[in-house]
Design a protein around this nucleic acid. Structure first.
Lengths: 241, 241
DNA sequence: TAAGACACGTGAGGC
DNA sequence: TGCCTCACGTGTCTT
């Protein structure tokens, strides 16, 4: 074994090292630790003593550095475990990483959708809930819900209450009013359950519930509008333009 | 060594195994592989032959399974390397994971912001660009830009053109008009450059550019509004309500 | 040279 | 028992 040009400083932690090596040694009686130690002890007192000590110290440093590296990586993995939605924390490393990958892709899709353009309210009243993004994949499907009707001040709070009550996982929510009309579009997702597969029926039923809820918001609005028109004004007013 | 109650099927891949062991053996002449093989060959012909063979085969299986596991994990890591924004693919495993963590948190914040509520246009004209989310961290800062003014049909296309031209990384874009007023709010981010640190000056200059651009949109709008008022109508019209 | 990163084979422990 | 996952120390290559 070649030791190189060390400036031998004289310190000697051989004993300590051999002790720790014994401690961490395997249960096998003829392990290589034994080999190392014998080849070490038979030279004690020789001119290679420092050399061997250095090598051993280097080995110790090496394994400790490796341990630190492992700890760093595992720390990050633990953080990721906390970031992915999971039923329980028992997940093997590969599965965790796969989940992280799908999560990142999913979120990126959401971000893309969230930065899409404007919307213009049309003349006809409308409530619809339809599948929005089929290319999402990764056990996630999204719906776009639209409500378009005459603008009334109280409809906003009605709508907000309804959405809050449904506890949807919103991706985007856009509202615009134009002339006397308003249109609100929001996108929500139904992501996979804990069995990792999309529960299509559940999603569809959620979509139906949303549709119903929006329908009653619209109905309430048009009823109060009708009432207002009947009692006070002969015609629906529009902004003069 | 204890072998247990194997049903010895008679096959013998000892030769193959020892060959592969030599192949993967370290450069050290007295490695434990040598040890294993000697303790193996000296018993050839004994009643423990099958036992040893089994043990060796199990060891081989084990190491191969471990290799497959490593490959699986590394495959996922490679996928993640492709998902994080990076200048070059040379990245530490720990660094990669750290980046993934920040990316996930970042995207989650975006998703949260994207699902936030409504906005109401006020009476006074306004253009502002201000830091939006300071808790983002992870080398990412976001700005919220607002423009609020009288509604005019052409302002929407002006605004859209302006935003497209600036090529901002939009998080959220909300527009609402109420009475004759409109308000548009959008959130955009300036994420870290390739040196992993936020270029604060660059972000600020982008914010300034956005502010300027919105300012000219507003100016154009108010000028055309003024013109319309002067030429056609004595008073600004509002929807009667 | 030393320090860091990765792949490897292996022992331990959980079903 | 076998199979699987993880932690460990080490060899090797790169900077």
């Amino acid at each position: 074994m070649f030791c190189g040009k060390f400036s031998s400083t004289g310190y000697d932690d051989l004993e300590l090292l051999s002790h720790s090596l014994h401690e961490i040694g395997g249960s096998d009686g003829v392990s290589r630790d034994g080999l190392l130690l014998s080849s070490l002890t038979e030279r004690v007192g020789g001119k290679n003593e420092n050399c061997e000590a250095k090598a051993l110290a280097a080995l110790k440093n090496h394994s400790e550095a490796e341990r630190r590296r492992r700890e760093r990586i595992n720390g990050h993995l633990a953080t990721l475990r906390g970031l992915v939605p999971s039923t329980h924390q028992k997940m093997d490393r590969a599965t965790l990483l796969a989940k992280v990958i799908s999560q990142v892709k999913e979120l990126k899709n959401h971000a893309m959708e969230a930065s899409k353009g404007f919307l213009i309210p049309m003349e006809t009243d409308e409530v619809k809930v339809e599948p929005y993004d089929t290319k999402l994949g990764y056990g996630c499907m999204s719906y776009m819900a639209t409500i378009c009707c005459d603008y009334q001040p109280e409809i906003l709070s009605d709508l907000k209450k309804t959405l809050d009550a449904l506890q949807l996982q919103l991706v985007k929510s856009e509202m615009s009013t134009l002339e006397s009309r308003m249109k609100n579009v929001f996108v929500f997702t139904c992501c996979k359950g804990h069995n990792n597969s999309v529960n299509v029926e559940a999603c569809q039923s959620i979509a139906n519930v949303v549709h119903k809820a929006l329908g009653s918001v619209l109905e309430k609005a048009s009823m109060s509008m009708e009432f207002a028109l009947r009692t006070s004004y002969p015609n629906k007013r529009r902004r003069i333009c």
